[in-house]
């Protein structure tokens, strides 16, 4: 694909006897929301971790924005515009919500070898952070310790942190997992507002979320992508129905 923002070729990762990524080829177009679905243990998180740079692939390559990033570590990829959320919420628990996001702004705006000025008094960090919190609906919770936020709010906070780094590609690992119906609908509506502006790779078990948000869907089973297509194509795919959707959709 010519205008692919992300191009994955032959990506393989083995854990002992288990092939968690089996020669994965995948293109994600600029502006696309690409969902990855598949049963538990299929290797979705393993794929996200390799894309984010948290896990080294055994073989294969990852190109992002026309550059080979396979050998770059996570912080470097983040600074190039790759942001991730974790399947198990990962935040700075002992900092306020605003601190969490301000740290993300700080990471994105570069220079942190500054030893004198109080970071919490820098409008250049606090204002964009406040805006990102507002955007995800946490505006009123800025000064709450992150550990004391409700589970759903912590998920929103993670998204706010990712957005504060002004990413070009957002890797979301089950953003609505563990949320109540209303909360998860709110999150889906919010993610829908990001579509087009930001390219998204979305791993999700919630099929309502997937079919609402995704432009294309890839189906993963045993480390392999067995099908990629638009939502109607995937819904109609026999292999997919047998391997996966059949279980909870048909």
């Amino acid at each position: 694909m010519a205008d692919a923002l992300l191009a994955i070729r032959g990506l393989s990762k083995r854990f002992g006897g288990l092939l968690a990524s089996d020669r994965i080829d995948l293109d994600v177009a600029r502006g696309e929301t690409h969902a990855i679905i598949g049963p538990n243990g299929a290797g979705k998180t393993t794929l996200i971790s390799q894309l984010a740079g948290d896990l080294r692939p055994d073989a294969g390559s990852i190109r992002f924005a026309d550059q080979d990033v396979t050998r770059l570590d996570a912080p470097h990829r983040a600074r190039r515009g790759l942001a991730r959320s974790f399947q198990v919420t990962s935040i700075f628990r002992d900092f306020s919500a605003l601190d969490n996001v301000a740290l993300a702004v700080q990471a994105h705006t570069g220079q942190s070898f500054r030893f004198w000025r109080a970071a919490r008094a820098e409008p250049a960090l606090r204002e964009p952070a406040r805006a990102a919190l507002e955007a995800v609906g946490l505006g009123g919770r800025a000064h709450v310790r992150a550990a004391n936020l409700a589970h759903g709010e912590q998920r929103q906070l993670e998204i706010a942190m990712a957005l504060a780094t002004e990413p070009r590609l957002l890797l979301l690992d089950e953003p609505v997992a563990g949320m109540g119906l209303e909360e998860s609908q709110r999150m889906v509506r919010f993610l829908a507002t990001l579509k087009r502006r930001i390219t998204i790779v979305l791993v999700e078990h919630d099929m309502d979320a997937v079919f609402t948000l995704a432009d294309r869907i890839s189906v993963m089973v045993y480390g392999r992508i067995i099908a990629t297509g638009t939502p109607p194509e995937v819904r109609g795919n026999e292999d997919v129905r047998r391997a996966y959707l059949g279980e909870d959709q048909a």
Binding site: A52, D54, D73, A74, P75, A78, R79, A83, R84, F86, S90, I91, F92, R93, D94, F95, D99, A102, L103, A104, Q106, A107, H108, Q111, S112, F113, R114, F115, W116, R117, A118, A119, R120, E122, L125, M161, A162, A164, T165
Partner: peptide, 26 residues
């Protein structure tokens, strides 16, 4: 001053949650 500075925030973030600190680009 140092622990409240940008630099201080980075090392405190690293203590709090290293994978997260790396994931946002530190």
């Amino acid at each position: 001053r140092l622990v409240a500075s940008r630099f201080g925030m980075v090392i405190r973030a690293a203590k709090s949650n290293e994978p997260r600190a790396r994931a946002i680009g530190f």
